[in-house]
Amino acid sequence: MINDNPFLFSNETNETIFDLISRREKELENELMELDGERLLKTSLEDWCNYFENKYKSDIPKILQENIERSDSEEVTLKDYDFGINTSVKGTKITYYVPFQGDSYF
């Protein structure tokens, strides 16, 4: 099976890093707008900073190169629709398993 997702670490379909940042910014803005005024004043600035940093920070993925694995190769037939003509081409499929640490939504 060919993965049509152009983003290496993402399970989200067609969400770019700009979409992600925009979405997270809106989530933060909504949370700030919904804060109770009394709670806002009773909580220290340092506590708010720690809370929002921990909730909204992103851990950029780091590839664990020493653990990359390659599967055995296998013969496959790829089907394509080229200039109105159905074609098929034989090829070799090799799957790599690339483990990483960090947020998978990148």
Rank of each mutant, 00 (worst) to 15 (best):
K42P: 06
P99L: 03
F83K: 14
F106M: 05
P6E: 00
M1S: 06
K55F: 05
K90Y: 06
S71G: 07
K93M: 07
N50W: 10
M33R: 15
L40N: 10
D4A: 06
E25R: 06
S104N: 12
Y81F: 11
R24H: 04
I2T: 10
R39D: 04
L32Q: 02
L28R: 03
E27W: 06
L64E: 12
T87I: 11
D80L: 11
Y105V: 04
N14G: 01
E27G: 01
E29N: 09
T92P: 03
D80G: 04
Y105N: 08
Y96V: 00
D47P: 01
Y97A: 06
S58H: 11
S22Q: 08
E12H: 11
E69L: 14
K42R: 15
F100R: 01
K90A: 10
I60A: 01
T92I: 15
E25P: 00
N86Q: 10
F9E: 03
D19Q: 04
D19S: 11
N54T: 14
E69D: 06
E74C: 05
L28P: 03
E38R: 12
S88G: 00
Q101C: 02
L20E: 03
E27L: 04
L45V: 15
D82W: 08
E74R: 15
T13R: 13
I21S: 07
